[in-house]
Design a protein around this nucleic acid. Sequence first.
DNA 1: CTAAACCCTGGAGTTGGCTTTAAGTCAAGC
DNA 2: GCTTGACTTAAAGCCAACTCCAGGGTTTAG
Lengths: 130, 130
Amino acid sequence: MNISEVSKKYNIPIDTLRYYEKEGLLPPVRRTESGLRDYSEQDCGWVEFIKCMRGAGLSIDTLRQYITLYGKGNRTLQKRKNLLVSERDKLKARIDEMQKTLQRLNYKIKVYEERIVACEKELLRKRKSK
Amino acid sequence: MNISEVSKKYNIPIDTLRYYEKEGLLPPVRRTESGLRDYSEQDCGWVEFIKCMRGAGLSIDTLRQYITLYGKGNRTLQKRKNLLVSERDKLKARIDEMQKTLQRLNYKIKVYEERIVACEKELLRKRKSK
DNA sequence: CTAAACCCTGGAGTTGGCTTTAAGTCAAGC
DNA sequence: GCTTGACTTAAAGCCAACTCCAGGGTTTAG
């Protein structure tokens, strides 16, 4: 799979794919003889994983650490788990905060709706009294 | 209330408070004769609101638009509500995405735990067979 | 009265995460 | 054989959102 196919499949710009690789977010992708990237199934898996994690706000640096540990094999299992747990906890905290803000926005919107209705009634009243 | 008190109260750096004001995220704060900022209750309310909304990912630009509309009075009620609804919807979408990623992380962590247990058993087996 | 601590402004610098550019290689279609 | 379009690299550029700095005025404790 060449870079533009991967780009289309996951809807990630080509430049971003190269950037992620340069930054060590995925293991160096195999090349054809002429030097073109040829993504394996596993590479695609990483790309999808990165996209998902970036979407949830994990930093480039954190993901680089994770894949670096992954590259060192089984003896980093515990460290990788710890990293995931720590990111999971942070993510959970972010979600909780955002949930509260969501509710606050919903409440604000409700108040706006009431005020808008009140405004319209007021207009109607004025028009009648003319 | 002077700027460092507000900074401490909401845990926002002084520079950031000034930056927000410069960017039009809150109405110009009243000054003492000598030119020092003196935050009113209402100013504090805005600061808290901004902190909350920024924490949920609303952009500086969006918040500037909101307060600009607010400054124009009642005739912008509908526009302000529309803006809030649009941001609410985006926030909800972000939360949903992050929820999915949270579950994925939880699953991954579970798998890691099992693998770690398996690894430990393996070690124990080796030690016994010596 | 003065030193230390605090506040002011305008503008420059930093950070994270891309995104574009320049200059070149390579493969396929006409 | 030549053009077109996709790929390559390293490096520079860009954007949002801060963050820091220089140079100067103000407030307060001793």
